Computed example of a mutant assay.
Amino acid sequence: MTTEAVQQEIERLRNPDILQLEQVKRFSTWLDDRRKLGQPGRAVGNTGLGKTSAAIFYTFRNRASNQPHQSPTVPVLYLEIRGGSCSPILLFELILKTLKHKATGGNENQLRKRAWDKLRQCKVEVLIIDESHRLQFKSLPDVTDLHKELGILPILIGTSSRLDTLLSKDEQVASRFACYFNFEELAGNNFRKTVKIWEQEILRLPEPSNMATNDDIITLLQEKTSGQLRLLDQILRNAAIKALESGVKKIDKALLDSIEGDYSLVAS
């Protein structure tokens, strides 16, 4: 490969990809069922298991459509809560900002009314709230009111322990989100299958590495990732970039061992 071609491949590997893994497909089916039944739900799992990627994929699959001189139709609205705590005001501001509403200032009641009006105008059917364990407890009634008053289906996404702890503070709220989808850690044949998919569809090196059939490599990757999809993605991309920079056409165990630094989860 020429130097320019190598650099292009490295830049490609630095850009995120969302693949239709089996768990992503099952999550999409689960969301479709929630819409048919009109039942809110929650998607839970430890960090790094692909919850956000799966939610973004579903949102893209149900992306907004635009018509001249009208508000866009947004069947699925995806929000990601940032920061340590999300009050009702911050939640309404995020909804308005995501729907590109120009006026995002005002008090809580003004923002609530404005957000509700905008959600109606955009015909939002599903509201996916990622990192929802960051919601303040007093924001939960506003989330449930979206379902009761507007017929919008709220789907909460968060880490198992923190989101369940938040919901458990109010049994009525908890009962509304009793239906859940559990994101599982990669293990066994599923881990091997995912490594194979990553090699073929993400890394795409000049020569096959056949990592999924190499027991030593699989054992090494399992130890380094603890079944986390995010860590697996980081390690394999890192290895592929190092291979390209070194003029190597595939990944072997020696190359994986030579990656500077290491990957491990911080003990809780």
Rank of each mutant, 00 (worst) to 15 (best):
M1V: 11
Q8P: 00
E9M: 08
N15D: 09
L19T: 03
Q20P: 13
E22Y: 05
D33V: 12
K36D: 05
P40V: 07
P40F: 00
G41R: 04
G41C: 06
A43S: 10
A43R: 02
V44S: 07
N46Y: 05
N46S: 14
L49M: 09
G50L: 02
T52Y: 02
S53E: 10
F60W: 10
F60R: 15
R61S: 12
N62K: 04
S65D: 04
P68S: 09
S71M: 08
T73C: 11
V76P: 03
L79H: 04
L79Y: 05
C86L: 07
I89C: 05
I89H: 06
L96A: 10
T98E: 15
H101K: 12
K102G: 04
G105F: 06
G105P: 03
N109K: 13
Q110A: 11
L111W: 08
A115C: 03
A115K: 00
D117P: 00
K118H: 06
Q121R: 09
K123A: 09
E125A: 12
V126G: 05
L127V: 06
S132G: 05
F137Q: 12
S139V: 01
L140G: 01
V143H: 04
T144R: 15
T144K: 15
D145C: 06
H147Q: 11
K148Y: 07
G151F: 04
L153T: 05
I155F: 08
I157D: 07
T159K: 09
T159Y: 01
Q172W: 07
V173Y: 13
C179D: 15
N182E: 13
L186P: 10
N189G: 10
R192E: 13
R192P: 05
E199C: 02
L203A: 01
S209Y: 00
N210Q: 12
T213P: 00
N214M: 04
I217T: 11
I218F: 05
T219A: 12
Q222H: 06
E223L: 14
K224M: 09
K224N: 02
Q228A: 13
L229A: 14
L229Y: 11
R230Y: 03
D233T: 15
I235V: 07
R237D: 01
A239L: 03
K242T: 09
G247T: 07
G247R: 13
K249N: 14
K253R: 13
A254I: 09
L255F: 03
D257G: 00
D257W: 04
G261K: 05
G261I: 02
S264G: 06
V266G: 10
A267L: 11
